[in-house]
Simulated scan of single mutants.
Amino acid sequence: MKLSRLGALSSSLLLGALLALTGTATAHAASSVQGVDYVALGDSYSSGVGSGSYDSASGDCKRSTKAYPALWAAANSPSSFAFTACSGARTGDVTSGQLGSLNASTDLVSISIGGNDAGFADVMTTCVLNSEATCLSRIATARSYVDSTLPGNLDSVYSAIRAKAPSAHVVVLGYPRFYKIGGSCVVGLSDTVRSAINSAADYLNAATAKRAADHGFTYVDVAGGFTGHEICSGDSWLHSLNWLNIGESYHPTAAGQSGGYLPALTSAA
């Protein structure tokens, strides 16, 4: 009986210790997140174009309260949050106008950039308004740019971020594939064109991932998160062509921000 009681007491003490440690660890994790100084950089995929609920003070940058940086900040209560991502931004716009909030105390930086440099908007305009051959030629030009010029542009941005925020954990997020091939769309672009556009997105993401890795940054793919939610899927997290609000075309919806991008940042932050 004494041994049994001793064993029970030991088990109770051990359980109590484990619970105490778990509670301490949980509290520490919460406090470490709340102590984070977070800066969100990038283009329209980071500012939240397409998700609505835009901050009027952000003007043409169209920063949304439903964009993944704002959602992450709302869920984690960082000690500071600077949201400088802007619709239409290219790499040069980030280095010239978005880095002012970075400093030696910055702990976390997120960014999506490169799509506008590669001519994303012009590719889609060309493909929608012109022949398949013209579209495929424009995509080939974009891929060539990704090979020849984009890596140097990304290097400039990533180096500038590291110089201003030497201790920050930098999360680079990619772009989704736009289309479900063989999906529910019965009009519009051919599946040949849709496949070429998807392939170009993969090509851009691969180049971005390599540059991020070479700078010691964390690259996060979002294409997997959008699988089953592409245009033509029947449950799209991306706007298709929207003639009433052309700027939101081919951008994530609010569901795409919360269901596709937010989990990607959360997993890497």
Score class of each variant (00 low, 15 high):
R143E: 15
S31V: 06
R194W: 04
S258E: 13
G225W: 13
V172R: 04
P176C: 04
T95R: 06
K2P: 00
G23N: 07
N130I: 00
A30M: 04
G182Y: 05
Y175P: 07
N76W: 08
I231N: 09
R138E: 15
D202Q: 11
C86M: 04
R194Q: 09
A27W: 15
M124N: 14
A85Q: 01
H251Y: 12
V220E: 14
A27R: 10
N103I: 02
H251D: 10
K180D: 05
Y261K: 06
Q34R: 15
T126E: 13
S10A: 15
K62D: 05
I181Q: 05
P176D: 07
I181W: 09
S12V: 11
G119L: 10
R162C: 09
G225H: 13
S159E: 05
A89W: 08
A30R: 13
S199D: 15
V36S: 12
P176I: 00
S240P: 13
L154Q: 09
I181Y: 09
H215C: 07
S110D: 03
A133W: 05
V193E: 12
F178R: 01
G100K: 01
G52L: 01
N242G: 02
T253S: 14
A75F: 06
D43G: 09
R138F: 10
T24M: 11
S167H: 15
G59L: 07
V109Y: 07
A160P: 00
S101F: 05
L265D: 05
Q257A: 09
S167N: 15
S77P: 00
D93S: 12
W72P: 01
D43P: 13
L108F: 08
S249T: 03
V49C: 03
G35Q: 13
F83W: 07
A168S: 12
L204I: 05
A142C: 10
T125D: 10
E230G: 06
Y158D: 06
Y203V: 02
S195E: 11
A254N: 08
D117G: 06
S80I: 11
A140R: 13
Y179F: 15
A121R: 11
A268C: 03
V172K: 05
Y68K: 02
R177Q: 14
G97I: 10
P176S: 11
K66L: 14
A17Q: 03
S167A: 14
L3C: 01
G256T: 07
T192A: 09
S10W: 02
K62M: 13
K164Y: 12
G259K: 02
C185Y: 03
D55T: 00
S105E: 12
T24H: 11
S46Q: 01
S156H: 07
L189Y: 13
I231F: 08
G88D: 12
Y68I: 02
S249V: 03
Y45F: 15
I111F: 08
G100N: 11
E230F: 12
Q34L: 00
G59T: 01
F226P: 01
N242K: 00
L136K: 14
Q98R: 10
Y219P: 07
V170D: 02
L136V: 07
D43T: 04
S159G: 13
A213D: 14
S105G: 13
Y45G: 00
Y175E: 09
S79D: 07
G152L: 03
S144H: 12
A268S: 09
